[in-house]
Design a binder for these strands. Structure first.
Lengths: 329, 329
DNA sequence: TTGAAAGCGGTACCAG
DNA sequence: CTGGTACCGCTTTCAA
C-alpha cells in the first residue's frame, strides 16, 4: 500500500511536504499542494493511522469488555458508550468475554498492549484477580453494573439495594404476607445480593415476615419458570415474588399461570429492568425501569474525564430508577 | 511508559536480546533470560502492539459497522461475529453509525486508515454512494442483512423473498381472503421489498387476491400498532396480516385487540425473526425464526476466507429460517 | 549467544 | 516555502 514516501516520489517533493499537505498545514505553495494532491489520488494513498499512533504516542481508542452483547444491559449500554466516545473522537475496541471466566483478565492485558486510553468493563462479578488485573492496568478502568468503588475502581451502577427496598416496601404495603426472592448466582453482588438485601431490609423495617425463599437461578425466562415451579410445588404459601430481573419474573409468571393461579392477583410479581418484554406480556409486568443507555453515557463521560484530568470528580455514580406499575403487582 | 530500550538498559543487554526473550525465541542464554525478565518486571514493561503492528504491517483487527447495537439482529449478530474473530485472534473495532446516513461511509474510510484487515457491515440499505465507498475500500467488506452480491459485494442474508412467500402461502391456505403487509421504509430491500414480493407472489401463484395494503412504518411496536390501527379504522375487511418484523406484528396484535377483535381468530398475524418477545405475548406470535448469531458466524468466516485466500468461494450466503407456529396464525 | 543498524510510515525541528 | 534528518518502539538481518 502506498506510503508518504511513494506520494512524495510521485509528486517530486519531500515527505515533509506531503505530510504538510495532508494535515492542511499552512505555508505550502498552492501549486505544490495541487501536485501532491494529484499524486495522492493517483496512487490511492490512505493515511496510515498505525504509524501516526506510534509517532504521536496516542491511539484515541477505548476498550470495552462485555460478557455478551445480546442482552438489554450490554447492548443498550454499548450504544450509550459509543455515542459519547464517538463524539469525543475515540475509536471503540470491543472484546467479548462470552462469560468465560479469565477472558476479561486477558482482555485488560491485551487492551494495554494495544495502548487504549481507557477501558470500560461490564462486570458480572468482582474478585481479587479482577481487582488485581485492574490495578495492574495502565489504562484507567471504569466498571458498569457492579460496584468496584470499595476497591477504588470508578463505577457506574444502579441503585440495586434501594430497588430491592422499594420492592419489599411495595409488596408489603400491598398486603402480601408470604414473599420471596428469585435471584441469580450469589457472586453477582449487584443483581443477587444487593437487591435481596434491600428487599429483606424493607420487610424488617416494616415489621413484616422475612423472605421465605431466596432461590439462585440463571438470567433467563426458563430459569425463572423453573425456580418458581419448584417453590409452588413445595406447597408453601406465597403471595408475592420479587425477581432479580424481568426475564426471571416473566418465567415466574408463566409458572404461576401454569399452576392455575393468577399473577397479580393470587401472587404478585415484580421484576427489575423494564425490559421491553415486560410491557407486552399478559398480565403486564410491574417493574423498575433501569436506564442502561444513560449508564453507558455516564460511564463514558467518567472515563473521558479520568483520561483528560488524570482523575474523576466522582468515583461512583449511582443511577436511580423508575417504578413502572402494571398488572402483575 | 517503559519501552524495549528501557528494559534493555536496565538489564544491561541490547534491544535485540530483549525482543528475543519477549518473543520466546530460542538461542538466548538462560541467565540472560532471567536478567531480562527481572528487568521487565521491575519497570512494568508492556509490549507496544502499535509498534509491532507498524513493523509487521499487520494489525489483526476487523472493523464492524452497525446502525445500532440494541437490536436483535445486530446484538446477536455481533456476538456471532466476535466468536469467530476472537477464535481467529482478530481484535474487533466497533463503529456505531447510529442510523445517521453518511456515517457508515466515514467509518469505512476510518477503518482503512486504521488498517483493519476486513470490515463487516450491517446494512439497512444499499445506494450508489455506499457501493462506491466499499469499492474504494482496500479492506474487504462483507455485508450482513442486505444483498450486495449484485454489486459484487459478498453478503450474508436471510431468505427474505422466500419468507414472504411462505407467509403468503400460509395465510392463503389457512383460508384468509383479505390479507395485507405491514412493512418498513421502501429503501430497505431485504425487509420491505423482498418480503413483500415473496408475499404477493405466493398469493398470485395460489390464485388468491393480491395484498390489500402495504404500509410503510418503523421498526417498532408502536409503529406496528399505529399502522394496523389505521388499516382497521379504514373499515376495510382484513383477516390476515403479514408483518415485516415481530415487533411490528406485536404492535399489530395490540391494535387488533384494542379494536375488540381477536388476533389469530378474527385476524391472523405473522411476524418475522422469532424475537424472544414473540414467545411471551398473548396470543403467542407465529413467526419465522431467523438465526442472527449464525449469520454473524458465517459472515465472519466468509471475511476470514477472503482475507486469507484473497477471495471467497461463496459470494452470497442465503440462510434459511424455521416456521414457528403459535396461536396468532 | 549477543549487539549494531536499518527500516516500518509517519511527524517535527532545523536549515536553507 | 521546502527538504533533510532524527525518532516513535519494535523486528530482523548481518556480524562479531
Amino acid at each position: 500500500m502506498a506510503s508518504l514516501h511513494d506520494v512524495a516520489r510521485l509528486a517530486g517533493v519531500s515527505k515533509s511536504t506531503v505530510s504538510r499537505v495532508i494535515n492542511d498545514e499552512y505555508g505550502v505553495k498552492e501549486a505544490t499542494k495541487v501536485k501532491v494532491k494529484r499524486a495522492i489520488e493517483e496512487c490511492g494513498y490512505v493515511v496510515n493511522q498505525v504509524a501516526k499512533d506510534l509517532k504521536s504516542n496516542k491511539t484515541n481508542s477505548i476498550g470495552i469488555i462485555v460478557p455478551r452483547v445480546a442482552s438489554n444491559a450490554t447492548s443498550q449500554g454499548v450504544d450509550g458508550l459509543s455515542e459519547i466516545f464517538e463524539q469525543a473522537g475515540k475509536q471503540v475496541l470491543l472484546a467479548n468475554s462470552r462469560l468465560e471466566p479469565g477472558k476479561e483478565l486477558q482482555y485488560i492485558e491485551l487492551f494495554n498492549q494495544k495502548r487504549v486510553e481507557g477501558i470500560v468493563m461490564f462486570a458480572t462479578h468482582i474478585d481479587d484477580e479482577l481487582v488485581a488485573a485492574i490495578k495492574r492496568s495502565k489504562a484507567p478502568v471504569v466498571l458498569i453494573g457492579q460496584d468496584g468503588s470499595g476497591f477504588n475502581i470508578p463505577s457506574v451502577i444502579h441503585d440495586d439495594y434501594r430497588v430491592g427496598y422499594c420492592a419489599g416496601e411495595f409488596l408489603s404495603q400491598a398486603g402480601c404476607k408470604h414473599v420471596g426472592f428469585l435471584g441469580v448466582q450469589s457472586d453477582d453482588i449487584a443483581v443477587d445480593q444487593q437487591r435481596f438485601d434491600g428487599f429483606s431490609t424493607a420487610l424488617k423495617h416494616l415489621a413484616a415476615k422475612p423472605p421465605k425463599f431466596h432461590s439462585q437461578g440463571q438470567f433467563s425466562i426458563a430459569s425463572g419458570r423453573q425456580e418458581m415451579a419448584n417453590i409452588l410445588s413445595s406447597n408453601q404459601q406465597v403471595d408475592g415474588v420479587f425477581c432479580a430481573t424481568d426475564r426471571i419474573a416473566i418465567g415466574a409468571m408463566q409458572a404461576i399461570a401454569a399452576a392455575g393461579l393468577v399473577p397479580g392477583k393470587d401472587i404478585k410479581v415484580i421484576g427489575v429492568g423494564n425490559d421491553e418484554m415486560a410491557a407486552v406480556v399478559t398480565p403486564g409486568l410491574s417493574t423498575f425501569a433501569y436506564g442502561f443507555e444513560p449508564a453507558g453515557n455516564n460511564a463514558a463521560k467518567m472515563l473521558l474525564e479520568i483520561i483528560e484530568q488524570g482523575r474523576s470528580q466522582v468515583s461512583k455514580l449511582v443511577l436511580g430508577f423508575d417504578w413502572v406499575p402494571r398488572e402483575s403487582a
